[in-house]
């Protein structure tokens, strides 16, 4: 078995009395591409931010185990933790507009992280920047470095962000909805780039997305989250060929495909993702599930289809 870079057991995140993420357990192996899918508000971003220590203030975090690179994350000294996050973890944010400072040129903000963790001069850092930028497919690196963020297009800004995350050669790159703000042709370029980084440098990736089609295309292993819980996890082929949880099935069938018949109605999931009561007993999806019955109020358990594939439905 490959080394586990991140190992989380029973992660729960609360805002005062409201449960946002409930009992999430998963791990990330070295060199893999893990996809986390779910609708907005399903807690996928919070889960990952809990790992990289970027949670907004005022949230309570509790877990049986949070191990990052084999070390207990929440009990290590502050300095060490910061170093770990800065050096070994890279984060590509969703919103490329807010992540870069609009009034500072790219060259003056890009290398900050690199300068902080390495004893180098600014010239050396900038050379490193240019190197990385050409690796992520930015041509004309001098011009980009001398621009303000608002002078760049969305795709270019996203590439700058990816380059920034790559500066310290992180072992793990977390991309939070990396392509939501991008056009579909640029989306493909960016995702291909991630795949390349993953293959060439053996960088582990976590891709958070709401686009099941995209995740299916690029990721090896997929986690499906709903209302703060993991409802199904499995390898790509297992999950798409044999989706077990009703929510996963519904999620796959609601996306209009190109060979859909026009007369056919899209299958829909009635209702909305619940905001409150996420800590309730039993299946959280039962209010919207067409197969729901009495037994769905029993506590969920993991049903293993195979060694790597499980779901949490009580009925199937």
């Amino acid at each position: 078995m490959r080394k586990k870079l991140i190992d989380i057991e029973n992660l729960t995140i609360k805002a005062e009395e409201k449960t946002l993420v409930n009992g999430v357990t998963f791990h990330v192996c070295e060199g893999e591409m893990l996809g986390i899918v779910g609708e907005s508000g399903s807690g996928k971003t919070l889960t990952v931010k809990g790992v990289v220590n970027l949670l907004p203030e005022g949230l309570d975090i509790k877990a049986d185990k949070v191990e990052v690179f084999g070390k207990d994350f929440y009990h290590m000294p502050y300095r060490e933790r910061r170093e770990l996050v800065g050096r070994k973890l890279g984060l590509v944010p969703q919103n490329t507009v807010f992540y870069l400072h609009p009034m500072i040129k790219i060259k003056n903000q890009m290398a900050d992280g690199y300068l902080h963790y390495n004893k180098v001069t600014k010239e050396e850092a900038l050379a490193r920047c240019e190197d990385i930028m050409s690796q992520v497919g930015l041509r004309d690196t001098k011009r980009v470095l001398n621009s303000y963020p608002w002078q760049l297009s969305g795709g270019m800004r996203q590439r700058v962000n990816i380059a920034m995350a790559m500066l310290n050669n992180p072992g793990l790159l977390i991309a939070d909805e990396p392509t939501t703000a991008l056009d579909s042709t640029i989306q493909k370029q960016v995702m291909d780039l991630f795949q390349n980084i993953n293959k060439k440098m053996n960088t582990t990736m976590i891709i958070i997305s709401h686009d099941l089609g995209l995740v299916k295309y690029y990721c090896d292993r997929i986690i499906v989250m709903y209302a703060g819980r993991i409802v199904e996890m499995g390898n790509k082929n297992e999950l798409f060929e044999n989706p077990c949880h009703p929510y996963t099935k519904a999620l796959i069938s609601v996306i209009p495909s190109l060979n859909i018949k026009k007369e056919e109605r899209l299958s829909e999931i009635p209702g909305y993702v619940p905001e409150d009561g996420r800590d309730m007993e039993g299946c959280i999806f039962r209010d919207r599930c067409e197969f729901a019955s009495e037994e769905c109020q029993n506590p969920e358990k993991k049903n293993f289809v195979s060694e790597t594939h499980y779901h949490t439905c009580c009925k199937f």
Partner: peptide, 14 residues
């Protein structure tokens, strides 16, 4: 909109 709600709205429009 989320994909599950998207399907609801598309069906409604149809």
């Amino acid at each position: 909109l989320d994909v599950s709600v998207q399907a609801q709205i598309l069906n409604l429009l149809k």
